[in-house]
């Protein structure tokens, strides 16, 4: 049974009704063309109404839809000849991040992204897509390898956060995230980051420093998950929908803030309703932005990447007399 959200129910019911009438028409050989057209029109209108006015919390739910494509799905849909590469060469191979080399329209690229499971069994082996330090170290190793062979890097980001576990802390989760962020910033190859689902805090940023940052329409990206934010603010994770509003975490918000460069529109109803359509969309955006950044000379590429992040922040300079800092 596919997952249906409350707000989709009227649409799903209408779609079922249309389907029913269709098969009835087919079986009985009757002419209900006008009625069907009318219902189709209604469904189209409803679809637009529902999906173009999603609340931030509904967007978060869409990003977590169990049938939403995972990183492995996108790799199949967007790239050819993927060869997966394993291990960080130091400790282990983290199944929660996959990476390797693939061809994008004939050209080799390095692709990296956190991987959620499709079912319970896979989720356990993938640690629910929550990476350990060795996952980030693998990502960094593959990115440096890409730099050596002058391959562009594409990161596909769908992660609620870095894993908060004992071993993860013991092996330097914070430290490795810092290293990833710093070293990725100076890599002398084009980097395109696509937030495909969840962009959860430092665990996402660790593979999110790029020359172009794109985001799928129903993805979210924030400093903290809405549940965690609600817990801190009101000691109540059930108020996550309110927190989602406050955090301004939707693709529309982030485009407005200039944090991302573009929003990749999803097929109406979300990526989970049409994997192939979503893959085609990503391909089109990737083609455009990759050819754009490939034209930038290497020294300028890194300089522009650093400049992009250097500018981020909102603050105000004050006169010395107004400052609290008095010697």
């Amino acid at each position: 049974m596919p997952t249906v959200f409350d707000w989709e129910k009227p649409l799903v019911e209408l779609e079922a009704k249309i389907q029913e009438l269709r098969s009835f028409v087919y079986e009985q050989g009757l002419d209900f063309k006008d009625e069907l057209n009318e219902l189709e029109r209604k469904a189209d209108k409803l679809r637009k109404e529902i999906y173009e006015r999603l609340t931030p919390w509904q967007q978060v739910r869409m990003a977590r839809h169990p049938e939403r494509p995972t990183t492995a799905d996108y790799i199949k849909l967007v790239f050819d000849d993927f060869v997966e590469l394993h291990g960080d060469r130091k400790y282990g191979d983290d199944q929660a991040i996959i990476g390797g080399i693939a061809a994008f329209e004939g050209e080799p690229v390095t692709v990296i992204g956190p991987q959620k499971g499709r079912d319970t069994k896979e989720n356990i082996s993938r640690n629910f897509g929550l990476p350990h330090p060795e996952g980030y170290r693998k990502a960094l190793r593959l990115m440096k390898q890409a730099e050596k062979f002058k391959r562009p890097i594409i990161t596909l980001i769908d992660v609620v956060g870095a894993y908060p576990g004992i071993g993860a802390e013991q092996r330097g989760q914070g430290l490795v995230i810092a290293e990833c962020i710093e070293q990725m910033s100076f890599l002398e190859v084009p980097i395109i980051c696509i937030i495909t689902g969840e962009g959860g805090s430092g665990g996402a940023l660790a593979i999110g420093v790029g020359d172009r940052i794109l985001m799928l329409e129903h993805a979210w990206y924030s400093v903290i998950s809405p549940e965690m934010c609600a817990t801190i603010l009101w000691k109540d994770p059930n108020r996550a929908p309110e927190a989602a509003e406050l955090l301004k975490l939707t693709s529309t918000d982030l485009l407005k803030f200039g944090i991302i460069d573009d929003v990749i529109t999803e097929p109406l109803g979300g990526a989970h309703r049409d994997h192939e359509g979503t893959g085609r969309q990503i391909k089109a955006f990737l083609r455009r932005y990759l050819s754009e950044v490939k034209k930038i000379p290497t020294d300028q590429l890194v300089e522009q990447r650093l400049e992009r992040f250097r500018k981020i922040g909102h603050f105000q300079a004050v006169q010395l007399e107004e400052s609290r800092v008095k010697l």
Binding site: E182, F186, L205, V223, L247, F257, I259, L306, R310, G313
Partner: peptide
């Protein structure tokens, strides 16, 4: 660590400061 009240702008300070160190 991050200042939740500034949302994504706070997160991006991690990148900005790490790059400054770099």
């Amino acid at each position: 660590g991050a200042r939740m009240q500034e949302g994504i702008f706070s997160l991006m300070q991690m990148a900005k400061t790490a790059q400054a160190v770099g």
